[in-house]
Design a protein around this nucleic acid. Structure first.
Length: 626
DNA sequence: ATAGGGTTAG
């Protein structure tokens, strides 16, 4: 009878030790479920050992490492313990450190002290984890003092936790101090933690130096360095670092793969993204939800929305972000109806939309000029889901309304918004004034914008564009001179094209490229073929007060034309040409791209600052609505 | 008996 009563507990211990043993062999240790723990708990109670500190300690320890910890259950177990041991306290502190209320660890620690239970080295690692997560700077500093007083300052685990804590709380100097105190208490994790501290502090060049000096690098070192590059906007350097890691034979982890997929996506490098995808496949790397989501995003941002859809539809499990990136991807490609339909299935699957979801939804509406739908979803967002509109939402709505010609309504929205309106909103409105030929209103908004931000040349350009469209050449020249007088600099536009893994970047009038002579010959050829097809240049985008002929030359040498010409030189006839641009496509280049797609039977996909243009058979997917 | 570092998406 007695033996029988204790059997489940023996089983539990057996399972725990089996779990540990099997970790080394297979990747998924068979852990007892919460139900099995509850069964064991029931047996402990029945056998009259309820509240036993040792037994409960084990149960709590087990729960605190379980990925699906029930914190309430943990707490209820703890509350039954009559006289909690340091082991029970430690595991409870660990449990809280993992939870959404890490500050409770600190509360429990002070209770532990009042109960005269002496902390040990394990206490501090868990406690500092909690302080890092809670960003509890003052408390963490006190904990540091306790560490010193109790003589644990030489424990490498605790030192690492301290470096991490200070770096999490943005006390970079303190991390450095702990790191520098004595080199003999360092291990790979100390180095990695310090590397993270440098990266977090934005000291990327110091991080690079340190990374180079590290004798031993593990996958976390690489991951920290790669993420450091990418998060600091050094995308190409991040990709290069990944390449070096692969050359050394280090197997990437999920975080690295997600990060470099994001870097490829941001750069719009399809070849690079594909290469990573095939690396994932050849490594037999499991496509987890985050990885699948990163792939969807990468393909969408590299122009292959169909592949995004394929991956999305084949993902056995999706989270809200998988849906968000898919909805936003469809919107950026102008597949408005599909994006909205997906949003509706998202709702019927029981997901709750967040702000980003509505950026996608409203973007879809604005791209396709779906005014009443846009109004409907904007209202739905605020009234049903209680989401306060952010700048991006306003951006979509102002764009949607203004383009549809509801300029007064759009202006009213900007004037009455709670947030301080971003000048971009006025600039959007200005753009709409240009489309609709509202010279007077445009003039008003343009002058106001220039007043607001006289160093931003884009406003002068837009205003001059309005005058140019109205053929008010004197005003064009006046604004242009104003722009020169205030010595603002135009943001340099560039276009890039990836050919066989190499990135070729062009700026307007570029003559640096090794194939420049051939590129300009190709441009000439394109020019005469499209002229035969009836094209005549639309020169209003050119604002320089120069002669007509020179104006024509200036637009002929826009960066995307050079990229397209190069693409036609180096790819097979009939191949799709993919271009990434930092700024918006000008009207004339948009027209030219359409004609090229028809005359040369070439698909051209251009990603500009905010959307995709898919040129095919003389038409663009944006329906000239951009 | 228990420990430590990195996690993206508009």
């Amino acid at each position: 009878m007695f033996a029988n009563k204790h059997k489940p507990l023996v089983c539990l211990r057996q399972q725990i030790s089996n779990a540990h043993r099997s970790t080394a062999i297979c990747h998924l240790p068979p852990r007892p479920s919460i139900n099995q723990i509850k069964q064991a708990h029931a047996h402990i109670i029945v056998s009259g050992h309820a509240g036993d500190s040792g037994l409960m300690g084990h149960l709590i320890a087990f729960l605190s490492v379980s990925p699906t910890t029930s914190f309430d259950y943990c707490l209820s177990l703890y509350q039954t313990v009559r006289c909690p041991s340091v082991f029970v306290f430690n595991n409870m502190i660990r449990c809280f450190a993992k939870s959404n209320s890490p500050f409770e660890s600190i509360v429990l620690y002070s209770y532990m002290q009042r109960s005269f239970v002496r902390p040990n080295k394990h206490t501090f690692t868990f406690l500092l984890q909690a302080c890092s997560k809670a960003l509890a700077i003052k408390e963490g500093i006190q904990v540091h003092a306790h560490v010193m007083r109790l003589g644990f300052q030489e424990d490498v685990f605790i030192r690492n936790a301290l470096i991490h804590f200070y770096s999490a709380c943005c006390r970079f100097e303190c991390s450095k101090q702990v790191f520098n105190e004595d080199a003999q208490w360092r291990d790979i994790i100390t180095w990695n933690s310090m590397l993270t501290a440098y990266v977090r502090d934005g000291q990327i060049s110091v991080a690079v130096k340190m990374f180079g000096e590290m004798q031993v690098k593990d996958v976390i070192s690489w991951s920290t360095m790669i993420m450091g590059y990418v998060q600091n906007g050094l995308l190409e350097e991040g990709l290069e670092c990944f390449k070096q890691m692969r050359e050394r034979g280090t197997r990437p982890n999920e975080a690295i793969l997600v990060t470099i997929l994001s870097a490829s996506a941001q750069l719009g490098l399809l070849g690079q993204g594909r290469l990573i995808h095939s690396t994932i496949d050849s490594l037999n790397f499991p496509i987890t939800v985050p990885l699948g989501t990163a792939l969807i995003d990468m393909y969408a941002k590299c122009g292959c929305i169909e592949l995004s859809k394929l991956i999305f539809n084949n993902m056995p499990e999706k989270d809200i972000w998988s849906w968000n990136v898919m909805i936003c991807g469809l919107a950026s490609h102008g597949h408005a109806r599909e994006a909205l339909a997906l949003f509706e299935s998202f709702l019927s699957e029981g997901f709750c939309p967040v702000n980003v979801t509505f950026v996608g939804v409203l973007n879809a509406c604005s791209r396709a000029g779906l005014v009443s739908e846009g109004r409907h979803y904007y209202k739905l967002m605020m009234e049903n889901y209680g989401i306060e509109p952010e700048m991006e939402h306003y951006g979509c709505m102002v764009d949607l309304l203004a383009r549809a010609g509801c300029i007064v309504e759009a202006a009213k929205m900007i004037e009455t918004m709670v947030l301080k309106p971003d000048p971009v909103l006025w600039a959007t409105l200005l753009g709409a004034c240009k489309i609709h030929g509202h010279v007077e209103l445009g003039e008003k908004i343009g002058s106001r914008l220039i007043q607001l931000d006289p160093t931003h040349d884009g406003h002068y350009v837009q205003l001059a564009g309005i005058y140019a469209k109205a053929r008010k050449w004197d005003d064009v020249i006046r604004v242009r001179r104003l722009m020169t007088a205030r010595s603002t600099n135009k943001i340099a536009g560039w276009s890039l094209i990836e050919v066989q893994g190499r990135v070729h970047r062009f700026i307007a009038g570029d003559r640096e490229h090794e194939y420049s002579p051939e590129i300009y010959k190709m441009l000439e050829m394109i020019g005469s073929r499209i002229a035969e097809a009836g094209y005549s240049p639309n020169i209003s985008p050119v604002l320089h007060d120069i002669g007509e002929e020179e104006k024509e030359n200036a637009i002929k040498e826009h960066s995307e034309r050079l990229a397209i010409a190069f693409g036609m030189l180096v790819t097979e006839v009939g191949d799709c040409i993919r271009i990434v641009k930092n700024l918006r496509v000008c009207e004339d280049c948009h027209d030219v791209s359409k004609i090229i797609s028809k005359v040369f039977l070439r698909e051209i996909i251009v990603r500009d600052g905010s959307r995709f243009h898919h040129f095919k058979e003389g038409k663009c997917s944006c329906l000239n609505y951009w």
